[in-house]
């Protein structure tokens, strides 16, 4: 029942599969051990019920529940990670903050060149709030698209700017390290994403792409895709849509750094349960 899954670009894995079960060398102890745990043979190889390992390492997300479901046990480096949100502001930065802080920590392997780069953020990041989350924003770079000349300013958020895509690809190819966060709203061509994924493979750090929820219906070359949704209150419902490993689990509920005090949160929840029709009443 255990089929060895392999990554197409791995020569070892493909030759292993090509040689078939008989070609493994039935008497060999090493082959038997490899059959027991193919991960020891090559990091790009795993069984269908296992989670695939990251090849370039990963950074723990800071949420133990999430880490258990992510291949490699954290946000992978050197691949695209797609986060699909209904709108900016569901708690996405609070979700990533522990990983970003870990990348910036003085002892981290990434520390020397660490630099968090934001591409076309949907609004201005607030440095005070980021500092409260333990992030040092002084090394951050924010790359914004140029204001369009002819188009209405509102149209800017409908399509990713070609310049932003270029800048993102250049940054991924530049050999820097650190986290990259890019907001690419609107429909993206698959070959654009594939280019980015190829560029990301040489990058030393996690690469997060924020897209709209509608994009989940379209295929994407990103090996890890997560759907995010706000949960009342200070929570996040996170669904793994695609990963290297077994079929995704049921949606996870994570609690984020709170905005409300516990008492306020209890009150608000109580009120919400008591008056679920309140918004409708307000409209009437």
């Amino acid at each position: 029942m255990n089929l060895p899954l392999f990554h197409p670009s791995d020569p070892i894995a493909s030759c292993l599969v090509g040689s078939g079960p008989g070609g493994l060398g039935s008497g060999s102890v090493a082959a038997a051990r490899a059959a027991a745990d193919p991960v020891t043979l090559h990091p790009g190889l795993w069984r269908a019920h296992q989670l695939g390992g990251g090849r370039q390492g990963c950074t723990a997300s800071g949420h133990a529940v999430l880490d258990a479901e992510l291949p490699g046990g954290g946000w992978p480096h050197g691949t695209l990670t797609e986060l699909l949100l209904p709108h900016p502001g569901v708690g996405e930065l609070r979700l990533l903050a522990p990983a970003l802080a870990a990348l910036q920590a003085p002892g981290a392997a990434q520390a020397p060149g660490h630099c968090v780069m934001l591409f076309a953020p949907p609004a201005r990041p607030c440095s005070q709030a980021l500092a409260q989350l333990g992030l040092d924003t002084r090394g951050w770079l924010v790359v914004q698209p140029r204001a369009p000349r002819g188009r209405a300013p509102a149209a800017r958020h409908l399509l990713p700017d070609a310049d932003v895509l270029w800048a993102l690809e250049q940054s991924l190819r530049s050999g820097q390290s650190g986290a990259v966060l890019a907001w690419l709203p609107g429909p993206l061509k698959t070959d654009t994403l594939r280019r980015l994924q190829l560029a990301a493979q040489g990058y030393d750090g996690p690469v997060f792409i924020f897209r709209e929820t509608q994009a989940r219906l379209r295929p994407s070359p990103a090996p890890l895709r997560l759907g995010l949704q706000a949960a009342a209150f200070d929570g996040l419902v996170l669904q793994v849509l695609k990963r290297r490993g077994p079929p995704p689990p049921a949606p996870l509920r994570l609690s984020l750094v709170p905005v409300l005090l516990p008492s306020q949160q209890r009150q608000a929840l109580a009120r919400r349960q008591a008056g679920t029709v309140a918004p409708g009443m307000a409209l009437a």
């Binding site: 900016p88 930065l93 609070r94 953020p121 949907p122 609004a123 607030c126 409260q132 709170p258």
Partner: peptide
């Protein structure tokens, strides 16, 4: 608690 929102509208 967090005192400021992470995104500020321009």
């Amino acid at each position: 608690p967090l005192l400021r929102p992470l995104w500020l509208l321009p």
